[in-house]
């Protein structure tokens, strides 16, 4: 059978492969090569060695963006997962109406980042108006604004994954613990949490990579204001490419660094998941 399928390569695999090469493979390789060159239009590249990387790391805006992104990611991963987990435990007790609540909490996840950014710009500026400031008055407002926005968007999504995890726990295990007289908190700590560990791993990494790679929301909510203090990594790379002339090579070097960081996160996730699977 394999042989007869093999003859149909041009029909089954070629269209996807062509598109994949044009949209991903060639740009990816080109991107790595160009990060060691100086260029403006891809075709006029001149080899400059590591100088783009040196420029990137001595660029204060890049370092600020990196630091801002790390702080934002840590805080949003923690808050989103704590709230989502609490909501999931509230909604898996078999009470009436839980489906409606689930529907409501999940909805913000479907709205695109640009739209979300402008919704929250209105709300947050409306609140800050009472204190005579705006969202872009100080970087801390933009920072907390992004945290609130991200929570609003992702809590429902993570809640759904946690609910699926909690519902997979056999009911009799929890019942047995209850009959043995274990207090609710102990059941949560010693029974529920270990058993939903796979869901926790998934959610931690989903929130981690979503927060770390955030772009649209950042662009719409503050666009980096005031004076680029709320610029995250993805937006800083975009700015290097498109709003600074002669910085294309440095932008590409920053993008490679960004890719390496994201790949490291994914690698850690892979190792952890593998280890969990072996344990079980």
């Amino acid at each position: 059978m394999e042989k007869s399928i093999k003859k149909y390569f041009a029909l089954f695999a070629l269209p996807t492969l062509l598109a994949f090469s044009v949209a991903f493979l060639i740009p990816f390789i080109l991107g790595i090569v160009l990060s060691f060159t100086e260029f403006t239009t891809v075709t006029d590249a001149k080899w400059v060695g590591l100088s783009n990387y040196i420029k990137a790391f001595s660029n204060q805006e890049f370092i600020n963006a990196l630091w801002f992104t790390v702080k934002f990611t840590v805080l949003s991963v923690i808050t989103i997962n704590v709230f989502a987990f609490l909501l999931a435990t509230m909604l898996t007790r078999g009470k009436k109406g839980t489906n409606i609540f689930r529907t409501i909490f999940f909805m913000p996840n479907l709205i695109g980042g640009i739209v979300l950014g402008y919704i929250w710009q209105l709300i947050l500026n409306g609140i800050l108006y009472y204190f005579d400031v705006t969202l872009t008055f100080d970087a801390k407002y933009g920072f907390w604004g992004l945290i609130i926005l991200m929570n609003w968007q992702l809590i429902g999504y993570m809640m759904i994954v946690y609910i699926a995890g909690i519902q997979n726990i056999p009911k009799d295990i929890i019942e047995a613990a209850k009959i043995d007289g274990a207090p609710r908190f102990q059941i949560l700590r010693n029974v529920t949490i270990p058993l939903v560990m796979p869901a926790i791993t998934i959610c931690l990494f989903l929130t981690l990579s979503n927060s770390f790679k955030l772009f649209d929301q950042n662009l719409a909510l503050t666009a980096g204001a005031p004076s680029k203090q709320t610029t995250m990594l993805a937006l800083d790379i975009y700015n290097s490419f498109y709003s600074k002339t002669g910085w294309e090579g440095v932008g590409q070097a920053k993008a490679v660094v960004f890719f390496v960081l994201v790949a490291l996160i994914a690698l850690v996730q892979l190792v952890i998941t593998r280890r969990k699977e072996i344990e079980n």
Partner: peptide, 27 residues
């Protein structure tokens, strides 16, 4: 091929953004 497809999932858009739009332009 399978592993290259899986690998592409972890690459952030910013990594290929500039080169991809140039390639798209050229062809």
């Amino acid at each position: 091929l399978y592993y290259v497809f899986v690998f592409s999932m972890i690459v952030p858009f910013q990594m290929v953004m500039f080169t991809m739009s140039k390639v798209a332009n050229i062809i």
